[in-house]
Design a protein around this nucleic acid. Structure first.
Lengths: 330, 330
DNA sequence: AATTTTATCGCAATCGTTTGAAATTTTTTT
DNA sequence: AAAAAAATTTCAAACGATTGCGATAAAATT
């Protein structure tokens, strides 16, 4: 079954290809009668314009590339969902690839994007990679790149991210409000800059505004590690009365221990996390958390992308607002 | 910054476009010396073949379309991850769109796929839609469609899905093994055929092999509803000793109630679910579940797609195996 | 030395669409 | 009725790559 083309329509209607093309897009040059005929035949023959031909001719694809470490991730998927939604509204489609945190795959994927001449790329750096050179080249070739979540330090790139420091500070505020005496703060992988930032902000705030509160700071790069760390700390005679989980991963680990040890929340232990809300609401009582919405971030990223495409370079770093969502765990 | 093209390379090297093209793909007609020169320049100029031109010329895109109700879904994201992985290995990229369970959006998305002349489509029907006509047209135009998870009844389509009945039966077997006396079985949305299937299979099995076990069957279309239903049942004097949760959503609701009521698992209540494993492992003790792997399904779907593309029509319905994963909740 | 092979390379059409400019037809103006 | 203006349609050149076939040059065969 061969596809319907402009040529075919033109032949059947005894018209030129250009007339058919213009008729299909309501060009004022074409008479109403002709337009009607063309549309009629196009419909009955299920004409679908060939996106490749268009893109080749117009040198602009209606496709954005998205690259994330993993699609199956509570945070990224809502980001992707938001970007997809906005893209669709604006006539764009999404090409989504995952790097699996492997630099080579990330490069492969970027190559695919370039070969498909995507109009722009939304990128979350893979943990290990430092291949900014490739991204640099893309922006030079007028392919805007909007980084999100895990972004390069270099500020010649456009980035959107959560207000990481604010997250940590809001959590610290709430902890202080609740009169915590002994806090266990568990952060993510020590290698990630986001962990550093949040830890510094948190620690700084606590030391400034509540110097008497005893805080223990640790890092966990997995759920299991977080669980083990928590158990170890909770084994001591001087048990923490409050625990702060920087990520969902950490929270999951903590809550496993909490359930296993049958610790009463919030009476024996206050719990607060940073999350998009899905995990905290899985438990009873609901865990209080500082909300970081991948969805909101996606919306923001899209706006940035559009701005980038129109008005030259907007080399800014935008952050999306965060807010405290009270549960019953603190 | 203009993109590097074959023409540009040809000009700079004083060669014809065809020679450059052939050199780049190691055509035997071209001398080693020429090949070397061409490759050298292509590298230094960051030549990337224009995918549109290739696809236009060769009439074949290296892109698959994927359409799901929502990307941010514990099940679909692992399916997508698997398909993406296989696609990348085979030189394909993925175009992913979500229907949000809205038929119009689903149609829009299919149009985008057609316009991009995707090589094939992986589709999960949106709950409400019955637009099989469009899918029918696609298969007629030689665009293979592989349905997954929520598939059409019509068996002229290629579909892969979980062994739904088997899931329910395995769960029933385990429940019987554990000598349950009173079972509360909570299924998903009554409108979905998958709920029907699982319910029928479960009920059938129980009545045949354990007629003395008292079973209560209910449907819940949300987490909150499942929680409410469970609480209501657990309020009775004759409490269930075992609960079966057909979906993660149901399980989440049940577990909220379990935590709130401080029910001891498994001593006071046995719990078993059907899941890909993420949610069941969030709790302590770990919930036992029948594993339905979106990942495995994705792999299977991909194999089917490739088969479909090569050897004409393979109108089969394949199911992926499921297995019981013991936790400590039953 | 003339002829045939073989190794290299170029020509030109093609994929389906867009678009400036020219050509044609129709309508309006003088 | 002739000329000018407006409306409608067509021509033809792109966009960037692929590929069958023909052309040229070098090597091998008589």
């Amino acid at each position: 079954m061969t596809n319907t083309t402009l040529k075919l329509l033109a032949q059947q209607l005894q018209l030129s290809i250009s007339t058919v093309s213009r008729a299909l897009k309501d060009h004022p040059d074409i008479s109403a009668a002709t337009k009607a005929k063309v549309h009629a035949l196009a419909n009955s023959l299920d004409y679908e314009p060939n996106a490749y031909a268009i893109q080749l001719r117009t040198q602009s694809s209606k496709i954005f590339g998205v690259i994330v470490p993993a699609i199956s991730n509570l945070f990224y998927d809502s980001f992707i969902a938001a970007v997809e939604e906005e893209s669709r509204k604006n006539g764009y489609a999404l090409m989504i690839l995952q790097s699996s945190n492997q630099p080579e795959i990330e490069l492969d994927n970027l190559k695919i994007f370039r070969q498909n001449r995507v109009s722009g790329v939304f990128a979350c750096l893979s943990a290990n990679a430092e291949n900014l050179e490739t991204y640099q080249k893309m922006t030079e070739k007028e392919i805007p790149v909007v980084f999100f979540d895990i972004v390069p330090k270099d500020n010649k790139f456009t980035k959107v991210r959560m207000a990481d420091e604010r997250c940590a500070i809001i959590a610290a505020e709430e902890i202080i409000k609740r009169n915590a005496k002994k806090v266990l703060a568990i952060f993510g992988d020590a290698g990630l800059s986001i962990s550093q930032k949040r830890k510094n902000a948190f620690q700084n705030f606590m030391e400034t505004y509540a110097p008497k509160v005893h805080c223990t700071y640790v890092n966990a790069s997995s759920s299991a590690e977080a669980e083990a760390l928590f158990r170890k700390q909770y084994d001591k005679t001087q048990k923490p009365d409050t625990v702060f989980a920087m990520t969902d991963e950490v929270l999951i680990g903590v809550m496993k221990a909490v359930q296993a040890l049958e610790i009463k929340v919030p009476s024996q232990l206050g719990v607060i996390g940073i999350s998009n809300g899905f995990i905290p609401n899985l438990y009873h009582p609901k865990i209080s958390y500082v909300e970081t919405s991948g969805y909101e971030l996606g919306k923001l990223a899209f706006v940035q992308m559009m701005a980038n495409m129109k008005g030259g370079k907007t080399l800014t770093e935008l952050t999306v607002e965060v807010k405290f969502v009270p549960g019953e765990s603190l």
